[in-house]
């Protein structure tokens, strides 16, 4: 699995950073414009999937190894739970928007506004992106090695 032709590789090297930046934009502006953590995370994952399809799985595992992706996944889930628990500590109840109500109200329609909502968006974006990347890389390992019929025949020979 060495990847696709040189045309696909060249266009991928131009387009991958645009897709990645668009994912970051969708996550960061999720509380102002359509989008949010889930959609942005999937776009982040899809930029890595594009690299994986064009250059092969070994190239993408050098950039973002499976343990690192697993750690990012855990970090996202942990920070989302921590935001909820910090709401319990500072605001009095689970998942309360303590930053907006007490400490950092901000102006509506600004980037820094809405309290904990952008932080939750970032956490969910990291989590969804890393986990979908993990799923597809795991499935490509499965597809590469496991074909019905072929492996069994080799063993018999």
């Amino acid at each position: 699995m060495k990847g696709m032709t040189v045309i696909v590789k060249t266009i991928t090297s131009w387009v991958k950073i645009l897709i990645f930046l668009f994912g970051i934009y969708i996550i960061l502006f999720g509380h102002l414009t359509p989008g949010g953590g889930f959609a942005g995370g999937v776009i982040l994952a899809s930029s890595y999937i594009l690299i994986m399809l064009a250059y092969g799985r070994d190239f993408v595992e050098e950039n973002l190894s499976l343990p690192a992706a697993s750690r990012i996944d855990c970090l996202g889930a942990f920070s989302f739970a921590m935001i909820a628990i910090l709401g319990l500590v500072f605001g009095g109840s689970f998942f309360v928007n303590f930053l907006f109500q007490k400490y950092l109200p901000g102006q509506p329609l600004n980037l820094v506004s809405a309290g904990t909502i952008p932080l939750s968006n970032i956490a969910i974006g990291l989590k969804v992106g890393a986990s979908l990347f993990l799923v597809i890389v795991s499935l490509s390992i499965c597809c590469k090695d496991f074909r019905p019929g072929t492996s069994v025949n080799k063993k018999k020979e």
Partner: peptide, 12 residues
């Protein structure tokens, strides 16, 4: 909530 996107303010 202070979020201009109401969908985000509902889900988060």
């Amino acid at each position: 909530t202070g979020a201009a996107n109401l969908v985000t303010s509902v889900i988060l």
